[in-house]
Write a protein that binds this DNA or RNA. Sequence first.
DNA 1: GATGAAATGTTTACTAA
DNA 2: TTAGTAAACATTTCATC
Lengths: 164, 164
Amino acid sequence: MMLSRPVSSQLDEIDRTLLTLLQDDASTSHADLAQRVGLSATGVHKRLKHLRQGGYIKKVTAVLDRSKLGLDLLCILKVTFRGNLQPDNLAELQRCIQALPEILECYTVTGSSDAIIKVAVRDHVALRDFLHRLSTQQQAIERAETCIVLQELKEGGELPLGNA
Amino acid sequence: MMLSRPVSSQLDEIDRTLLTLLQDDASTSHADLAQRVGLSATGVHKRLKHLRQGGYIKKVTAVLDRSKLGLDLLCILKVTFRGNLQPDNLAELQRCIQALPEILECYTVTGSSDAIIKVAVRDHVALRDFLHRLSTQQQAIERAETCIVLQELKEGGELPLGNA
DNA sequence: GATGAAATGTTTACTAA
DNA sequence: TTAGTAAACATTTCATC
């Protein structure tokens, strides 16, 4: 016999719709959300509480306009290390992330580079300064190709939940 | 003689602090924010209104947990086109972004690749399927190096406003 | 999950600096 | 132009069904 759902249950379609709506605009009121998914505001509230407590929603954040804030130059760095991703290099990289706030994102990856770093700076002077601080703090960099972003065709990265 | 500031004025330190706090948690109440910046809730409200209307805050979004939603495989694609970034290729790329929701971010860049694409999929089967649809829809791809993300050392990309 | 009441949070008009 | 006070309004949350 099928008892009630486990605490950390699978998400149903209403949950996924709610998450999609909140990815688009997290300031939507419960009443609005309720109308769209065909539930009461309280029903929405309980589901959101579950989604937050279950860690599905990690946080709610304000997305700012980089240009308006003077950070016009976006770059993607492809970095390779001497000795690849050996523990020392990784530890140093993590220290860099803490020390250099211009680093927006940082991933270690397979392929021709060891790490990929996204950086936002004011202009090419700030970029030069950043690269100098990076190479000072990360001793084991063998090569760092700086790719300047020409166009942001899509960003923000809302997850596709239609088939999740 | 120096007259009053234009409507779309520069941001002061309180504005920047508010933006930083909202990047960290956009669900913070006006009362809480007020306490932190030494203002009344009304003062905060007026500043936030200005920041929203001025376009400094583009939107408020819920950040979801990829793993919990079954999108465990994050990849970064370095793509080069036959004929580089010629208009036809760009148009086709924009169509791809619309058609392939797995694409979280897409940038055209300088350097050894023409575009860099961030993709989230469920597993390697979904990745294979995605790559197939990509190459079908984007005819002019000369080469696409798929870098699988091993670790997300930093993501989300909150902007550093200390020196803005 | 729904209803309605209580607690919070937000917005506005008004006032003062 | 900017911010504070207080009141009106809306939303979120909780107890109860």
